[in-house]
Design a protein around this nucleic acid. Structure first.
Lengths: 359, 359
DNA sequence: ATGAAAGCGCTAACAG
DNA sequence: CTGTTAGCGCTTTCAT
């Protein structure tokens, strides 16, 4: 009755579904109780060295591995961190993610990545992810929630850290930021200090769907610096285009072939600065003698290109974001903090004083 | 006895640890059994439309979300896919990962990423990850296991797919590949067809630690094409350097300033081709008139640079990898398959017939 | 220091 | 169709 297949004991693929040893198997074989096995596995001090070593021996012998899901259900934590990140192939986001991955890799937390490329996806993730039944905390990178999402997010009661998000309504949350306005001002001031007065700006289109603010803030910094230097704004030197090398290239080319062209261009990102560099070449302009170029971000390729740029600590933003998040997980009642990272200005070879060519 | 704190029922921060509604709460409030709630949640056809809607109503009212860990423990699956990927900031790996993320985003599986930057990490992940208690399947990207790992990997009995791994000892596993040898041959043949005979090659250093083969296979393809065309190998036209723009730049510069320099260079990756482009500029050579350049991969920036290159379907490799993996998860006994993706040759503007300059 | 037993929240027979 | 009842594998009091 009990052994229908007694005659063919090896019949049903015994290998392909090898039922894994559980904590009970270990316990039985070690001659202890499951509780004790659990204790040694969790480094409880309440076990005799002898039993501990005995248990560990059996663990090795059976090649036992604890069941993750059972563990997590039992302790009431998911040990998962969700990351919501837009355009996760972009160099700057990748660099932030690397910081996150790196910091998380030395913990027991898993990272669950959600890539956002459309506003729809953004909305989905912002409503679905932040539930304690799914993750213990979430890291939002460069992606502002809508103001109307805030209530839900905070009532979800789950720790959230915003990296590179500046909307005022996220103040109830932890955040790590850097100052785009001052970065933009810094870059522009440097060009001014070099003697430039005709300074162009190329940044992103005003963004309705994602509410990104970086490019605009850098633009405001640019205006501020000009204003402080008493240089009046020239609209033909200012362009807002898609965040994209091509678009930057095209518009820079137009700008550089004007009668009265800028002698320097501040691009709101290194990606766009690359477009400007190429445009200079197309226009027959030497960098930096005929045109100075400053970028923003200091993505990996910037150094290779010799691009002068405003370096924001991308990797660190991810790393520190994780740290703050884990702190909050352990101490949910702490006041929200904002951790501001300092930019660094990287002077390389795409900038110089304007050389006056023989007319 | 049972209610020690009867007099102070609201005392201990009731908000910061809001105990979430469980399936029982829903059941009770809806006047049904937990089983029934579970059924509607899992779209079982065995529920009356009436009770279903009733239950769903309560679900919404209570803002109930099922506990992931409990669900997964109960069904005996982790619903997790592990990805082991080296140098996950590199454009080609990112593109593969994007394919993976994209394919997984429409499933219930989570992706757990493990970034490998050292042989140690590789070893750790190859021994720890592949356990059914942790993930339901694993995707290995561009990272060959050592031969000695194979036994453990297959005896772990967990579905694994290798993307871009060519070692013969992984044949027991599913894999998606593209043919680097034929890609290298293709690129070189094209240059030959253009009339080039002095064709340089710049590829990676022979790699001891990770056993990467792509660069070497492309090199073999290069040699094959030359051989087929009856062109004899010139050692001074061949360089193996770190996988890196700088290194490629430097070595290309040396190559291009030789007395007898190549008229074309095939770089084993677009990244290295970028170094060659820059070196040409440094050396005062116009591309393509004075120097033709072919890359490999077709990473995003290649199109922008107008780089002629061998396109391998990176995104698709990830996407298809996921598909094959999920198929195997559902059908563990299927024969191992190899899915070979076709390369595509992208002719752009860095290649032309060699122009004979006036000596 | 260790064992026994209850329970984490869900699913899946099994009855009815 | 729905309710009841065992688990899934681990942790954690509570006794001893």
């Amino acid at each position: 009755m009990e052994k229908k297949y007694k005659m063919k004991p090896v019949a049903m693929k015994p290998v392909s579904t090898p039922t894994h040893p559980t904590i009970r198997d270990v316990a039985r074989k070690a001659g202890v109780s499951p509780g004790t096995v659990s204790r040694v596995l969790n480094n409880s001090p309440l076990v005799t060295p002898l039993t501990r070593s005995k248990v560990l021996e059996i663990v090795k012998e059976l090649d036992y591995h604890p069941n993750l899901m059972a563990h997590r259900l039992s302790i009431g934590k998911t040990l998962r961190i969700g990351a919501i990140v837009p355009f996760f192939h972009r160099p700057a986001e990748i660099e932030r993610l690397r910081g996150v991955v790196s910091a998380l890799s030395v913990t027991t937390y898993d990272l669950v990545i959600h890539n956002v490329e459309t506003p729809d996806q953004r909305d989905i993730y912002f409503t679905q992810i932040p539930h304690r039944e799914r993750v213990d905390g979430v890291i939002v990178i460069s992606l502002p929630p809508k103001e109307e999402d805030i209530a839900r997010l905070s009532s979800a009661g789950i720790p959230i850290i915003f990296i590179d998000v500046h909307q005022p309504w996220i103040q109830p949350f932890d955040r790590v930021t850097s100052n785009d306005f001052s970065g933009g001002r810094l870059a522009t001031r440097y060009l001014i200090s070099l003697g430039h007065e005709k300074i162009g700006f190329i940044g992103d289109l005003p963004d309705e769907s994602f509410l990104f603010t970086s490019s605009h803030d850098r633009y405001l910094g640019y205006r501020k610096a000009l204003d402080e230097a008493g240089i009046s704004l020239n609209d033909t030197f200012i362009a807002h285009e898609k965040h994209d090398r091509y678009a930057a290239h095209k518009i820079a080319e137009r700008m550089l072939t004007m009668e009265d062209r800028p002698t320097a261009i501040f691009a709101a990102s290194d990606t766009q600065a690359m477009g400007v560099i190429a445009a200079a070449r197309t226009a027959g302009l030497f960098v930096p003698d005929n045109l100075s170029i400053v970028g923003y971000d200091d993505i990996e390729i910037a150094e290779y290109l010799g691009l002068t740029t405003v370096r924001q600590p991308l990797f660190d933003s991810g790393r520190i974001g994780v740290e703050l998040l884990l702190e909050r997980i352990n101490n949910p009642d702490r006041e929200p903090v904002e951790y501001t990272l300092q930019n660094e200005f990287m002077i390389r070879t795409t900038t110089s004083s304007p050389k006056h060519l023989p007319q």
